[in-house]
Amino acid sequence: MTADQGAARRRFEPEVTEHTQPFWDATRDRRLVIQWCPGCNAPVWYPRETCPGCLGSEYEWRESTGSGTVDAVTVMHRPGSPGMAEMVPYTVAMIELAEGVRMMSNVVGCEPYEVAPGMAVRLTWETLSDGRNLPLFEPARP
């Protein structure tokens, strides 16, 4: 089963706000973009109106390579929300992206208990009901 055939409609789907629109628009092309503060020359995760380093409101979007490492992982045996009930057990992981951002995601494409801190992962996608894509990760196999 690929991520695309997963339980897209069973997930909680976040609203698009004025500020997060560029992020979600990019996912329609399967691009993961990271907010970047030119003043601090540092990534800003999660996307927000002002940079938490300098409180500046200038920013740009840079595309992530999508390669990362698992920082921490849990296998959820109880669904985090009712809509996830048919997906258990599933992973919730913190992913350290090569760009220096740590984001929450799911690692899919392998058995949940194969996922461990230190595992190299790469970006994959799951399509949401409105055509946006949700960034997920899978083991980075050569």
Partner: peptide
């Protein structure tokens, strides 16, 4: 936006 879609609790 950044946690609930992944089914965290």
């Amino acid at each position: 936006d950044w946690e609930l879609p992944y089914g965290n609790a």
